[in-house]
Design a protein around this nucleic acid. Structure first.
Lengths: 343, 343
DNA sequence: ATTAGCACTCATGCTTATCGAGTGCTAATG
DNA sequence: CATTAGCACTCGATAAGCATGAGTGCTAAT
């Protein structure tokens, strides 16, 4: 079913207006905004039809119209234009992200917080996801009499570290020996392969050394689990509190959704290509998100490595602007991470 | 001025009741709760006098009484009993904090989040504060072709690390040389001494090597600044949202106070001995905190090292219970950190 | 297809009335 | 003199009534 050009323009205006003012719009108002040479009664007829089609809604009989989620969907798929960031905007983003930070985790944290600041909404991002991350290197460094740090680097550029303690005095010599063993036994393995069971069988093969290496091996297990769990970054949740669409109740529900984050991760994984996706309220089938939309996109590091970054806000959000900002930041992050990985 | 025993008991009951139910209490109700053999009219007379003394307040003429901040103050200083944690409570805390985590930062994060979970309020803690933290050791570890990690350990047990990148290919040899220089020039210095200027003058003394070491030195500067800045841990802010005393407005204000945290830090430093302190609403002279109280205590690592941990909640909080929980956790954290530092 | 005109709806804001919990005060009591 | 019964009074909370006006839907005319 095709809508007339005029209906399109009306729908578009309703959405734009609602995004800007958060109030239902009347036929009269639309009439003066649209400059068609028709009267408000004609607009009213059009509005009635758009409402019948399920694209618009009325909060109550004598109120103006607001977009339904179907209305938003049509708007997003067909009607909205593309927004181009101003030079100033881009420079602002560049100036904050182009620091020579080379830790992927910190870079992502920065990007997430920057986007939250810019959008005044909540932002979520994942660390780099990779099909098959494997151990690139392991280093042990002594930091105290009985304590040392284990540093794990992976093929996706991740560098994770963790402190651990042994029951005996450490020396460079001992640590070197341990380190060599770890390198020999674990470098090249996929992170997934490093399980409790695998560690145990490795320990067994070490014979009398196994006893001394339990702490190191435990630490390795923990850190590789840490490395294979994609980490999540949240920011700007508090921004949502000041928005008219969230009362205390729903804000709390939303926060909890973020905190017990499995559900959110699932939502995020709905993004399965390199395009930007918009999910609107009820489409997500999560009561807590009925009033909200999520825009997600991927930052692409290289063929095998990407991550996801997205904005969560009220359905009434400025999609064009947000998409532009999100995509630009995702683009920069992807580039930056690619540099880090290559370098 | 001394209050009669009966007045004390009445005040105490008003506070207890308000803490539990968040509602003004009437003379009649008090009468039945207290089991004095007097009538509600007598209680009313007592209440009137307590109100005249500024210890109680009436939300409006025909309402019951609630404690004023002076009332709370008296209650806290003189009236409230001591609460002893149940075995179950203690075991729960132990089981979460007695993991063999040896990174002070992570330990503190865990403690903060545990306390937030237990109290359902917001919790803030500082890292270890120390009069004069000095550099105990520096290590450089290669993690990529041109990237390395610098690890700084300090006298207070802090272990901080940071990735940095050089403009040239790294080798074990080069890093060893760099490392030796760093150790020679910086180990034993107070963190405060490592300033931009100091780094520059050190670089100057290195002559032709200086050029190659700029990146390392920059990283060192950054990381030592990071280490000397006491870090702050927040948790449970969202808990405050569900409390009746905070509407959206005041919750946001409170969150912002936490986020731009200088003010909060000042408040925290009001704690200048090893006792537990309670600050009540208006006493803090921060509009945002008028409805809130803060309980702070120190965790003591050893003579020179301590940190602060505190709970922020509505003035109407269960002080005895909270103090018990807070102090127990602070005690464990202090102990644990002491072990880590010694070991 | 468009439109003027008009009856109809409903959220909003204001005023008024009622209710009842809880107080403060007075006068009586042991 | 502390205590108390009794009672008038206050004031928030809740509901009900009413006017207002923005905005619609429908009809009949163009």
């Amino acid at each position: 079913m095709e809508l007339s050009d005029r209906k399109m323009k009306i729908l578009s205006e309703v959405v734009n207006n609602y995004i800007q003012y958060a109030e239902p719009i009347s036929s009269k108002m639309l009439c003066s905004l649209l400059n068609f040479s028709v009267s408000s009664a004609t607009i009213r007829n059009e509005l009635a039809e758009l409402t019948d089609l399920g694209l618009l809604e009325q909060p109550h009989t004598s109120a103006g119209r607001i977009p339904s989620h179907l209305g938003y969907r049509l708007y997003i798929n067909k009607l909205m234009g593309k927004y181009y960031l101003t030079k100033k905007n881009k420079e602002h983003i560049n100036s904050i992200l182009n620091l020579d930070e080379i830790d992927p985790e910190i870079l992502l944290k920065n990007a997430t917080s920057l986007l939250a600041d810019m959008t005044k909404f909540a932002v979520i991002s994942t660390g780099v996801c990779t099909q098959e991350d494997y151990v690139k290197n392991i280093k042990l460094v002594q930091v105290g009499k009985c304590t040392a740090m284990i540093i794990l680097t992976t093929s996706s550029g991740l560098v994770k570290n963790k402190l651990f303690r042994c029951e005996f005095l450490l020396t460079d010599n001992i640590l070197d020996r341990f380190n060599n063993i770890l390198v020999e036994k674990f470098v090249g393995l996929s992170l997934k392969e490093i399980t409790q069971a695998y560690i145990q069988s490795t320990a067994a093969s070490l014979e009398e050394l196994a006893f001394f290496m339990t702490d190191v091996l435990d630490a390795l297990l923990e850190i590789s689990e840490l490395a294979s769990r994609t980490d999540l970054h949240f920011d700007g949740q508090i921004n949502l509190l000041s928005l008219p669409e969230y009362d205390q109740q729903s804000a709390i529900k939303l926060m909890n959704l973020f905190n017990y984050s499995d559900d959110i991760v699932d939502l995020f994984l709905m993004n399965d290509d390199n395009k930007t996706h918009v999910f609107i309220g009820e489409e997500m089938h999560h009561e807590e998100l009925d009033q909200s939309s999520i825009i997600i996109t991927r930052y692409v590091v290289d063929k095998a490595n990407y991550g996801i970054i997205g904005v969560v806000g009220p359905t009434r959000m400025n999609y064009t602007k947000l998409i532009a900002k999100l995509e630009y930041i995702a683009y920069l992050v992807g580039n930056k991470l690619n540099n880090i990985l290559e370098g």
